[in-house]
Design a protein around this nucleic acid. Structure first.
Length: 311
RNA sequence: CGCGGGGUAGAGCAGCUUGGUAGCUCGUCGGGCUCAUAACCCGGAGGUCAGAGGUUCAAAUCCUCUCCCCGCAA
């Protein structure tokens, strides 16, 4: 099938690779415009999807605007049977959605109608969900609200981070996408409307989500730490005065009478901090300003933290 | 050349302002204590101070350039 692919970050790469590997004719790739990334703000970086497209000699298009007609004209010239969107980061106007004869489908990293929006994987982990998944659906005018073609769930491990789940779902989504495309090609694709009443939103993340409130339970904080990876990362300045990013934690299962935020222990196992409802969270990996990410035990060798008296 | 922080023993850090014996904690090795130990005591090994050049009687420290790492931005 002749397919136009739209995607931007790493998540979309396995889907693009899978379509190519499945023998579909990917006639073009849309990706977000190159942006300065990282330390060299003077240099533009291609998106992961663009880099992948180039290795397969697929023409790349990076329209700045989707609604000024040029994007539509390019699509009409490419004349795809189907448009596949995976984390493109743009809302497509109706005239584009209506363009390809087989329609537009989307790879979304949640079990829709839960977690419509930009950051479904992170929010699933932040909320302490134990199940996540991928949905392939038709695209509708309303964001992530289209009819579901196929869906597959997967368990979220108790210590799994959003970053790890992201990688797993990108692969899961790629496989499911190829199934869906085959079904569409064969004319046997399912089409199940979403129950809009069950819909929840997963908005973009921000640094405001980073600070850790030690009066929350160890479990809630553990979810916060896992869910905010790889960005913006949970942080606390209560321990040392400087802002420490917290990369990995464990729920100790211990109980304490100490005030939330009290450092109960600091040693080679990590830093144990009292949390809400008498629970205890152990920080095992962190990052100090200007430093690399390191084991909490290593950090302590050069930055002793006083264990506070419990009260 | 976007702004800022950093590179010192296997790990995490101090020392640099004011040049003059390479320091701390942990790990490691050996010995001791102990029923025993991740505990404690004694002793040892381990560093071209990121690299190159310069100033100087003398550079981890001051000057110049290069490389690498981290944060800011998403």
């Amino acid at each position: 099938m002749r397919i136009l692919f739209m995607g931007t970050p790493e998540f979309a790469v396995p889907s693009l690779e899978a379509l190519v590997a499945a023998g579909h004719e990917v006639c073009g790739v849309f990706s977000q415009p190159d942006k300065p990334v990282g330390r060299h703000q003077n240099r533009l970086q291609p998106t992961p999807v663009k880099e992948c497209a180039i290795t397969h000699n697929i023409p790349v298009f990076q329209p700045v605007k989707m609604r000024d007609g040029t994007a539509l004209a390019q699509i009409q010239t490419l004349a795809p049977d189907l448009i596949v969107v995976a984390a493109y980061g743009r809302i497509l106007p109706d005239e584009i959605l209506a363009c390809p004869p087989k329609g537009c489908i989307n790879v979304h990293s949640s079990l829709l109608p839960k977690y419509r929006g930009a950051a479904p994987i992170n929010w699933a982990v932040l909320n302490g969900d134990t199940v996540s998944g991928v949905t392939i659906m038709h695209m509708a005018t309303e964001l992530d609200a289209g009819d579901i073609i196929v869906q597959e769930s997967t368990e979220i491990g108790p210590d799994e981070t959003a970053e790890e789940l992201y990688r797993r779902l990108s692969v899961l989504g790629a496989g499911l996408l190829v199934q869906a495309v085959s079904a569409i090609e064969a004319g046997i694709a399912q089409r199940t409307p979403q129950n809009g009443a069950d819909a929840t939103l997963a908005p973009m993340l921000s640094k405001e989500l980073s600070p850790m409130d030690w009066s929350r339970t160890a479990h809630a904080l553990h979810c916060q730490v896992r869910g905010l990876l790889p960005w913006p990362v949970a942080s606390t300045e209560k321990l040392t005065g400087e802002t420490i990013k917290v990369y990995r934690t464990e729920e100790t299962g211990d109980k304490t009478q100490a005030q939330p935020g009290t450092v109960l222990a600091a040693g080679k196992h990590g830093i144990d901090v009292a949390c809400g409802e008498g629970t205890v969270l152990r920080i095992t990996e962190l990052q100090a300003p200007g430093k690399k990410r390191m084991k909490a035990a290593d950090y302590l060798l050069g930055h002793p933290i006083a264990v506070q008296s419990q009260g």
